[in-house]
Amino acid sequence: MRSGLGNSLHRWLRTGELTWAYLSLAKGDPVRAIGDPFAYGAALVVAGDLLADGGEVQEVDEARAHFRKSRLARDA
């Protein structure tokens, strides 16, 4: 996890800024995070699907599309 990300995530989750938390995790390094980039991407797709529409919807949609594409490439 990038330096300072834990504190930022805590603040965003505590204040209900779920989209910011999601986008920050989507920009992260999945291998460093949990060791399996495909499991990380799958979890981010599910989390992104649960987000309500908000101001940063396009960025969330782009992140979900990226991780879905990665998952499909792996399954092919």
Rank of each mutant, 00 (worst) to 15 (best):
G54C: 02
R74Y: 03
G55D: 04
R74N: 03
D49C: 06
A43K: 10
A39W: 02
R68A: 00
L50M: 14
L25Q: 06
H10Q: 11
L51G: 01
P37H: 10
G55H: 13
H66I: 04
A52S: 04
S70A: 07
D36W: 05
R68K: 11
D49G: 05
W20F: 09
E59G: 09
L9K: 02
L51I: 03
H66W: 04
N7K: 14
E17H: 12
L13M: 15
S70M: 10
L51F: 02
L44D: 03
A52C: 06
T19C: 08
P37K: 10
L25E: 02
I34W: 07
L72A: 09
R74Q: 07
A43Q: 10
G54F: 00
R14C: 00
R68Q: 04
S70Y: 12
M1F: 11
S8D: 07
R2F: 13
G35N: 08
G6I: 13
L5N: 06
G35A: 01
L9W: 06
I34N: 10
L50Y: 14
G35C: 01
L18Y: 11
T15N: 12
R64V: 04
K27N: 09
Y40S: 08
S3Q: 13
D53L: 05
E59V: 13
D36N: 14
E17C: 08
G16Y: 08
D75C: 05
P37Q: 05
G35L: 07
K27C: 06
A76F: 08
D53K: 09
A76H: 11
H66Q: 09
D53R: 08
G48Q: 00
W12A: 00
M1Q: 07
R32I: 00
L13A: 00
R68F: 02
E17F: 08
E62R: 14
T19M: 08
W20T: 10
L5A: 12
A63P: 06
R74P: 09
G54K: 09
W12E: 03
L13C: 12
Q58N: 09
A33G: 05
E62V: 04
R2T: 15
A63M: 01
V46N: 05
T15R: 15
S70K: 14
E59K: 13
R74T: 00
F67A: 02
A33K: 11
V46H: 12
S8V: 15
L18V: 04
V57W: 05
L44Q: 04
V31T: 08
G6D: 11
A65R: 15
L13W: 00
V46L: 03
E62G: 09
A33W: 03
A76W: 11
D61V: 03
R68D: 00
R2W: 13
K27Y: 00
H66T: 09
V57A: 03
G16M: 06
L9P: 15
D36H: 03
L44H: 08
L44K: 09
L72F: 13
G16P: 00
E17K: 12
A65Q: 14
G28E: 12
R32P: 11
H10N: 15
M1P: 13
P37L: 06
L13N: 05
R14G: 01
R68Y: 01
L9F: 05
T19L: 03
L25I: 03
V60E: 01
R68S: 02
D61Y: 09
D29F: 07
L44I: 12
A42D: 12
L9Y: 04
A73R: 13
R2M: 06
D49E: 08
W12N: 08
W20D: 09
S8P: 15
D61A: 10
V31W: 03
Y22I: 12
G16H: 06
V46Y: 11
